Simulated scan of single mutants.
Amino acid sequence: MRERWGAVGALTGALFAVNVAARLVIRFGFEGDDSAADRVSLVMFVVIGLVLAAVAFRWGRDRPVSHWAGDLAVAVVLALALTVFVAPLLVGENPFGGGAGLFFAQIWLYLAAAGAGVLVGYLILTALGRDHRSQQLKRYAQLKAAKPRRVVRR
């Protein structure tokens, strides 16, 4: 159990660190330049998507979707909460300073990037036939093909 929540905590921390790094780059490198800040934010969302795609690919090989999807959802929700409420405070901003529109836009963009990343990672895994279910079906087919047919006497 400890190993399971440790992985969720590490993923949450990694996603939060990506956001804080992007905020620091915007704050110290591109203060006042909105177009550069938008590009850095786009790169941040792409990196978040790639991290989640890699995690979905890795976790999907070993465990069924029902086991890892909940862990991934918890990590994304925790990282989202930290990103929206704590990360602005670390760079000296107000979490609600941009208004309700910016606040909810952050949430929707984060969820869209996370969902797209998980979907891409799992779809690639499934297309390659390396997901947990495909491996189970492959083992079952090999097991059934290895058994000789029983001869029925009359």
Rank of each mutant, 00 (worst) to 15 (best):
G29K: 01
V91F: 05
K144A: 13
V20W: 01
V55S: 14
I124W: 09
E3R: 11
D33W: 00
L109E: 10
G97C: 14
R27L: 00
G99I: 09
R63M: 13
Q135G: 07
I124H: 06
A100V: 14
L137W: 02
L143I: 15
A22K: 01
Q106G: 11
R2G: 15
L102H: 14
W5A: 08
Q135A: 08
A112H: 07
Y122C: 05
A146F: 06
F103S: 06
I26F: 00
V152I: 14
G29T: 01
K144C: 13
R154V: 02
S35N: 09
R23P: 09
P88S: 08
K147A: 09
L52M: 09
R154T: 04
R39W: 11
L80T: 01
I26H: 02
V18H: 04
A146V: 10
A113I: 04
L11T: 06
G101H: 14
A7K: 12
V152A: 13
R27C: 00
G13M: 01
S35Q: 09
G29C: 03
N19Y: 00
L128Q: 03
E3V: 10
L15Y: 04
S41T: 11
R149S: 14
A116Y: 05
V84A: 13
V55D: 15
A14Y: 00
L128E: 05
I48S: 06
F85G: 04
V65F: 15
V47I: 04
I107N: 10
K147F: 10
R130P: 00
P95A: 04
W5E: 07
A105C: 12
A87F: 03
T12L: 11
G29D: 00
T12G: 13
L90C: 02
L72T: 15
L24F: 12
G13C: 02
Y140E: 13
A75Q: 08
I48W: 09
Q135M: 08
L89P: 07
D131Q: 08
V74P: 10
V77C: 13
K147I: 11
D62P: 02
K147N: 07
A145M: 10
N94R: 11
F57T: 15
F45T: 06
A145E: 13
L11C: 06
G98H: 09
G99L: 11
G49K: 02
L102C: 11
K147H: 10
V25I: 15
R39L: 08
K147Y: 07
T83F: 08
A100P: 10
R63D: 11
N94I: 10
R133Y: 05
T126P: 02
E93F: 03
R153I: 11
H132C: 05
K147Q: 08
V55I: 15
Y110P: 05
W108Y: 14
Y110E: 10
A37S: 05
Y110N: 11
G32D: 05
A56W: 14
R58K: 12
L111Y: 03
K138L: 13
N94W: 07
E31I: 01
V8K: 04
A56V: 12
L42N: 10
E3T: 08
D34M: 00
G13W: 01
F30H: 04
V76P: 13
F104P: 06
E3P: 02
A100C: 12
F30W: 03
R58A: 14
V76F: 14
